Simulated scan of single mutants.
Amino acid sequence: MSEDWGIVTLPTSGDPEKVAIGRLKAASDMALKYYGTPLVVTTSGGKDSSVCVELALRGGIPFEVQHNHTTADAPETVRFVRQEFARLENLGVKCTINYPAYKGKRTSMWSLIPQKLMPPTRLMRYCCSVLKEQGGNGRFITTGVRWAESSRRKRDRGVFEAFTRNKDKRLILKGENQKPSEVFESCKIAAKRVVNPIVDWPDKQVWSFLQDAKVPVNPLYECGVSRVGCIGCPLARKSKRYDEFRRWPAYEKLYIQAFDRMLDERRKRGKMDGNWMMGGTGQDVFRWWMEEDVLPGQISVDDILEN
């Protein structure tokens, strides 16, 4: 059985705001018709999420807002999301905070690390899949992903997307010259469907829109933070991570404590062979995780994966 997604008319050019709203309206129509639920706008507490929420309000579409509580976000971000949810709920928008779960139980970054027996790394981003990407399952969602953020996103992300566990069956619509039916051609595809309405917006366009619209933004931007995310994210530069731990020293302690519990669990399971010396403390793991000098005999990421 297939569905005719080609009924949706997408704007192809013109004012970036109108184009983005057109994308949201198209996604909203599809969400209502084929899912029977409103479009979900996901918010991380960052500037791009704030733009998407404001565009959805201006578009006059029915929508909900969801936030995935990672447990490793900055306190300022947590407070900002709460304040924004109060504002949006007063406007009649349903807002939901999704709390992370692993193996059927509530979890956090600090309990996940001992369970996974390794720190989150660039290659093993289990934290993202568990803490950030579980919300919105079974719904049509909106994100603030933009090509300007990285060359990888420019290569791999699109305006409309259908993500499946089989990467070979992932469907991407890069631009409005393609029909949505090319991406969502079969109702049999079990996928999370996504619209990224500002995917082609440069940073300048984002800030210009926010300033003109007087949209509330995370106060961290006023402190010089360029991107909002989990504190200590291994995808960030080392200097940025150290800046974050100087600003929020309690999070460094939480990571070290989690690494200590991780080592205890590895010992219990007999996974402390000679390859992983590291002094046997969470502090040593933290130093390794922060990409400091690795002494001979210390474990590599490849060693972790083999164990």
Rank of each mutant, 00 (worst) to 15 (best):
I231W: 03
R261S: 15
D302E: 14
R267N: 13
W201E: 05
M278S: 06
K271S: 09
L123S: 15
G232F: 03
K94I: 05
E292G: 04
L32S: 11
M118T: 14
M277Y: 04
G232N: 00
A26E: 04
D15N: 12
C127I: 02
I113L: 06
G60F: 04
R157I: 05
K188R: 14
V40Y: 02
D260I: 00
R146T: 02
N68F: 08
F85P: 14
Y35E: 07
I172E: 02
K179Y: 14
R247P: 10
R266N: 01
A190R: 15
D212A: 14
K238W: 04
A191M: 05
D15Y: 02
P11T: 05
G232D: 03
S208D: 13
I198A: 08
T96G: 10
G224L: 09
D293E: 15
G136L: 04
E244C: 01
H67C: 09
V78P: 12
S181Q: 11
N90Y: 04
Q134K: 13
R287Y: 00
G144C: 09
R157T: 11
G59Y: 06
V294N: 03
W288Q: 00
A86N: 08
S108M: 12
R246K: 14
D212P: 04
V183Y: 04
V159L: 15
R152I: 12
W248Y: 14
L24A: 01
K154N: 15
D303E: 00
M290N: 13
V51H: 05
E185H: 15
R261G: 09
A27M: 02
E84M: 13
E265F: 06
T77Q: 01
D15V: 04
W147Y: 07
Q298R: 06
S300V: 00
W248P: 14
I256T: 08
T164A: 07
L88F: 05
L263S: 06
M290Y: 00
R79L: 13
G135M: 05
N275A: 14
A213R: 12
L39Y: 09
G104F: 05
F160P: 09
D29H: 12
A236K: 02
R122L: 01
N98H: 14
E149D: 11
S186N: 15
G279M: 00
T121Y: 00
R241G: 06
I7L: 09
Y221W: 07
R139G: 13
R267S: 10
G46E: 05
P11E: 03
Q134H: 11
S2I: 12
V53M: 14
T107I: 03
R125T: 10
D156G: 07
G136V: 09
W147Q: 11
P120V: 00
V8T: 08
Y102S: 10
D200H: 11
T281N: 01
D29N: 05
Q257N: 11
Q83K: 13
D284K: 00
K169R: 09
K174L: 13
A27I: 02
L131Q: 09
L24Q: 01
Y126S: 08
R237K: 14
T121K: 00
V194N: 08
E149H: 07
T143G: 06
K240T: 15
S181C: 13
T107P: 07
G270S: 02
I7C: 13
L220T: 07
M109K: 00
I61L: 06
K268F: 07
S150I: 03
G270I: 01
C52D: 10
R165W: 15
K204E: 15
Q134M: 11
E244Y: 03
P219H: 01
